[in-house]
């Protein structure tokens, strides 16, 4: 006789798996899924000043999307985080390449360690330090005037460029690590094969290394793009509050002005934009993975 059905059920992998995952899953349902559903629901409700009235409406979305200020803020957020992503990934690639291909194996973890150390200190202080560096009487201007290169200190703060540099610095290791991992996976004999077949180094890099590193690059793009578009601190500190991004207006609507339905609609809108961008990159990644096989 085989074991009784009940015992077998209790011993089955699926049941064991569900039991094991249930604490974490329940937590995620209560504190992630339910809040997100509520946020979506609120975005279709009506604002009654101090209360939220559950009358279904699309007015919040209409209001948000017809508001030129919100539209320009959303556009600015996409542009800034797009710029940050581009700068971060382009700056990070040579470093990942250097560590993967030119650093001896024994020293690789030391280099990775060196790169991650700065990011274990306060994010707020790191962001603020860029204000110190870029300020009217800050480090760069002191050096420039000290060397006599300019009489008038440069106005660098409160600009999209300043916001971008700050964020590019903040997310540097998030870009380096995935690219490094994908470069490490490349079979070195493939590169030798490329050279052996008479291609020069540049061509080998272009035709072998870069395509194989693409999954890491796309991973880096996602990892940098998603959190930067929702960044609250940098526009406040480096943008001087004059160049708000989506996080700042969502926060305004939800907490300061307390228009929860409108704030929710804005949050959901921002999330949809992020999701759309993420899907484009996931699609690209899948194309690359298929292409490389």
């Amino acid at each position: 006789m085989a074991a009784s059905p009940l015992k077998r059920w209790a011993r089955s992998e699926a049941v064991n798996g569900y039991m094991m995952i249930s604490p974490t899953l329940i937590y995620a349902i209560l504190l992630l899924a339910a809040p997100l559903v509520t946020l979506v629901a609120y975005s279709f409700f009506t604002d009654g000043y101090l209360v939220v009235i559950p009358d279904l409406t699309t007015a919040n979305y209409a209001e948000a999307w017809s508001d030129p200020i919100f539209r320009s803020i959303l556009l600015r957020s996409v542009i800034v985080s797009g710029l940050v992503t581009l700068v971060t990934v382009v700056l990070a690639f040579p470093i990942a390449y250097f560590i993967s291909f030119h650093v001896p194996a024994a020293k690789k973890s030391r280099w990775l360690f060196l790169i991650t150390i700065p990011f274990w200190t306060s994010y707020l202080i790191r962001v603020f330090q860029w204000k110190v560096i870029l300020n009217y009487n800050g480090v760069i201007n002191s050096i420039l005037t000290g060397l006599g290169l300019t009489d008038h200190p440069l106005q660098m703060l409160n600009s999209i460029g300043a916001i971008s540099i700050t964020l590019a610095h903040a997310y540097a290791p998030f870009a380096i690590l995935p690219i490094f991992v994908s470069l490490e996976k490349i079979d070195r004999s493939l590169l030798e094969a490329g050279l052996d077949l008479g291609e020069n180094r540049l061509l080998t890099f272009w035709r072998v290394t870069l395509p194989l590193a693409m999954p890491g690059v796309i991973g880096a793009v996602m990892i940098v793009f998603i959190p930067t578009i929702g960044d609250y601190v940098t526009p406040e500190l480096i943008g001087g509050g004059k160049l708000p991004m989506v996080a700042n207006v969502i926060y305004q609507q939800l907490l300061k002005i307390d228009n929860k339905p409108l704030g929710s609609a804005m949050a959901i809108s921002a999330m949809l934009v992020v999701a759309a961008v993420a899907l484009v990159f996931l699609f690209l990644n899948r194309r690359f993975l298929r292409g490389s096989k």
């Binding site: 946020l39 996602m222 998603i226």
Partner: peptide, 24 residues
């Protein structure tokens, strides 16, 4: 799907987590 939900905060802007939790 289950793991996707649990790992979702990794790819969710923090402001979304903050505002949805606050609302609830």
């Amino acid at each position: 799907g289950v793991m996707g939900l649990i790992m979702l905060p990794l790819v969710l802007p923090e402001i979304i987590i903050a505002s949805s939790l606050l609302v609830v």
